[in-house]
Design a protein around this nucleic acid. Structure first.
Length: 400
DNA sequence: TCTGGGGTCCTGTAACCT
DNA sequence: TCTGAGGTTACAGGACCC
């Protein structure tokens, strides 16, 4: 471990993950601009090959605009089931190297390899080993950052992209960090960047040489203090595997704005069923239900309610989300998106179901569990509420 | 140009409790 | 019995990440 003493944190990040998986499936697209993006007139880019990025295409850009920038690009709708499968394989590979794997999303993870040195060599050797195996086994490339802290490892992998590896030794951290623009820091988005630029702070080095109190006044106690620590390379966060999930939910943007309450109600039912299905598959119950409504002008509001008894039943989520929606008293406002979220999750096994005096027979949950089994056997949507058999106004529009 | 869907975390305010 | 201080929780909004 002599060569990279103090560097045991790896950040591994797949290159253009969704797009790379698509190119693997359709090799004739190799070397061409490929965009994976939401279908329909309101889709955005979720992933783009480097050939497309050269034209200025990037994630979160509306597909229409991306196509104007890069008219020759192939646009694909995306296949989350496939990406999830590839992700599972890659994470399993990481876990064969160290149990300390903290996935951040489908396509990236932190690894702590402090305990793996004897078996597999130092962090640099492990990083090269991972890159080779991901390419051999999955046919896609990834980039690796190696450092002593999570956030430096993450910045290192970004600077190594695509298909590279970068090691930042403890003695090199300041030299690596301080020339970077403030926007490179994890947690500095467009708004914070604007605030920092107004203060005349352009680089991480500028940030480091301003008193923490100044940053806290401008950005709030937590963010200001945190950024000041990061600017000096201090990041005490450990690599933590198996963090429990805090919320789950579903939302949908209509292909055209909707003002019919009946359509909104049906969509809330659909989203409630989806969210409840996820809760059941996670083995969780929710204590708080939140709805989100985005209006035609993009203004967005949320409303939430905490339940007396935690639930994973779609009907309960629907009753609550519909009550929250109706309480808004919207008079045919034009609505672009609705969403349903389950928050403050609790473990279903550790939460005894409370029997309520005079409650109806507990048939609904059993019915939904049976529908889950049917869905596993016959596909999603095999069994669903009759109201949802002919949904309209949803993306894609066509009733099934 | 016209902005998805899945999440996490933080903050301000109000309500509530002691 | 009233009042105020201080802590906790619920709710809403917003920034950020991939």
């Amino acid at each position: 471990m002599e060569r990279v003493a103090g560097c045991t944190v790896l950040h591994v990040d797949m290159d253009a993950f969704f797009a790379s998986v698509e190119v693997r499936r359709r090799p004739e697209l190799a070397g061409t601009p490929v965009i994976v993006g939401g279908s329909g007139n309101r889709g955005v880019v979720t992933s783009a090959t480097y050939e497309a990025r050269r034209y200025g295409v990037h994630a979160a850009m509306p597909v229409g605009r991306a196509l104007r920038l890069c008219p020759t690009a192939t646009v694909l709708p995306g296949d989350m089931a496939l990406y999830t499968e590839v992700s599972r394989s890659v994470m399993a590979l990481f876990r064969s190297i160290t149990p300390l794997v903290e996935p951040l999303s489908l396509d990236e993870a932190f690894l702590d390899v402090a305990g793996s040195g004897r078996r597999l060599g130092d962090a640099v050797e492990i990083g090269e080993h991972i890159r080779a195996r991901v390419f051999d086994e999955q046919g896609i490339t990834c980039s690796v950052g190696v450092a002593g802290t999570k956030f430096v490892a993450k910045l290192a992998s970004t600077s190594a992209k695509p298909d590279g590896m970068r090691v930042v030794r403890p003695a090199e951290v300041m030299g690596f960090l301080h020339p970077l623009p403030v926007g490179a820091l994890w947690g500095v988005g467009p708004k914070t960047e604007e605030t920092l630029l107004r203060l005349g702070l352009r680089t991480v080095g500028d940030l480091a040489h301003v008193p923490a109190r100044t940053l806290q006044r401008a950005l709030g106690a937590a963010a200001g203090g945190h950024l000041h620590e990061l600017a000096w390379g201090r990041d005490p966060r450990r690599v933590v595997p198996d963090e429990p999930e805090r919320s789950t939910g579903a939302e949908e943007t209509f292909s055209t704005d909707v003002d019919d309450p009946a359509v909104i109600h049906r969509e809330l039912l659909h989203l409630s069923e989806r969210t409840a299905g996820r809760l059941r598959s996670m083995g969780c119950l929710t204590r708080t239900v939140t709805i989100k409504v985005r209006f035609a002008d993009f203004a967005t509001i949320t409303r939430s309610r905490t339940l007396g008894t935690p639930t994973d039943v779609g009907k309960d989520l629907y009753d609550t989300s519909r009550a929250l929606y109706d309480a808004l008293g919207l008079d045919r406002a034009r609505i672009r998106l609705v969403g349903v979220r389950a928050e403050r999750l609790v473990d279903a096994d550790e939460t005894p179901q409370q029997l309520e005096l005079g409650a109806r027979e507990h048939g609904r949950r059993e019915a939904e569990l049976a529908a889950d089994r049917a869905a596993r056997r016959f596909g999603a949507g095999a069994v669903r509420p009759a109201t949802l058999l002919h949904r309209s106004g949803r993306p894609g529009g066509t009733p099934r």
